[in-house]
């Protein structure tokens, strides 16, 4: 009975959050340019939350540390940029193509990577990610090299508010699909491979295939995030593929809590929010952002490895007893 109440509570809480998120841009739109800026920021938060949640499919649930997840984000971004700028494809088609291309890339890279476990997997994903980064960096005629691709066309109907709503709808759809995956029998098997690889093999799970499928799905959703992000900024650049962006997603998972489904989305929003707040307080604080982030991470790793969600759980349990 308690469990059921908890589930209901989660749904109610989720629905309330979604309703607030739908109202938010209309409230913000009343504040002129400041409001527009915050709409832009929240849109970025939504996209990055999707990216972090996609990473968590393999990181938190699969136990596979990938330092190359930005590769799929970047591939998605470049797909949208190239299709819209050079081929004149419409936004919707480009946004459908982005995850497909990213998923295909993930299938190729993942086929190699799932052969390895632990540290070696982490290093191989890093190597492949950087390989893609370098290719984008060097292939000047196709990707624009370190200039990137600028001036992605913007459909007329797409003001900041509409784009926010589009991202929100896509995010909610992806979020629910990923939640379904995680709670399906497939998702449970993936969690088993995280907890006990040998046992998973013993009971007849084809571990490599499961991990590969999981890897491809994570890449697929990262591609959507990348595509949305390219249209938001109206450019794609090599920095999207860089391993420091993979690092950002990993931090989001760590800060939010990688053993919970909503954790990464919360973590990434908190980090982006913190960054903006520091910027508003004083510009010099942003210049030492990496140091601040580093210390936050150190603290989380040493004292709260289960993230904000874990902390919240601990505190509520303490209050109850």
């Amino acid at each position: 009975m308690d469990k059921l109440q908890q589930v209901n509570k989660n749904w109610i809480f989720g629905a309330a959050t979604v309703a607030l998120l739908f109202i938010l841009p209309f409230v913000l739109a009343r504040f002129g340019t400041t409001g527009e800026f915050w709409i832009w920021v929240t849109t970025e938060m939504i996209i990055m939350a999707l990216f972090a949640t996609s990473l968590n499919l393999i990181l938190g649930f699969g136990g596979m540390v990938s330092f190359g997840h930005a590769a799929f984000f970047g591939v998605g971004a470049y797909t949208v940029a190239l299709l819209m700028k050079k081929a004149g494809v419409s936004l919707i088609l480009a946004l459908i193509a982005a995850p497909c291309v990213a998923g295909l890339t993930a299938a190729i890279i993942g086929w190699f990577c799932v052969r390895l476990i632990g540290l070696y997997f982490a290093i191989l994903t890093l190597a492949f990610g950087q390989l893609l980064y370098m290719i984008a960096f060097q292939w000047y005629t196709f990707t624009g090299g370190d200039d990137g691709i600028h001036g992605i066309p913007k459909p007329d109907f797409l003001g900041p508010t509409n784009y926010y709503l589009l991202c929100l709808v896509v995010f909610i759809a992806c979020f629910l699909v990923m939640r379904m995956i995680v709670n399906s029998s497939f998702g449970l098997s993936i969690r088993l491979t995280r907890e006990n690889l040998d046992r998973a093999k013993f009971i007849g799970i084809n571990v490599r295939r499961y991990q590969l499928i999981n890897f491809i799905m994570a890449g697929f959703f990262a591609g959507i995030a990348g595509g949305l992000f390219a249209e938001l900024n109206r450019f794609a650049q090599t920095e999207f593929l860089h391993w420091s962006r993979s690092g950002d997603a990993i931090f989001a998972c760590l800060v939010g809590g990688m053993y919970s489904f909503v954790g990464p989305a919360i973590g990434s929003s908190v980090l982006i929010f913190l960054h903006i707040v520091l910027q508003q307080i004083h510009q010099s604080l942003v210049e030492i952002w990496a140091i601040i982030l580093g210390f936050i991470l150190l603290g989380m790793v040493l004292f709260a490895p289960e993230g904000l969600v874990g902390l919240y759980g601990k505190i509520t349990r303490k209050l109850k007893t």
Binding site: V65, L119, G247, A290, G294, F295, L297, V301
Partner: peptide
Amino acid sequence: LLQLLLTYALLLILDD
């Protein structure tokens, strides 16, 4: 993961 993240955090701090 925790080990990698700790040293990655150090990298951020030291580089900056």
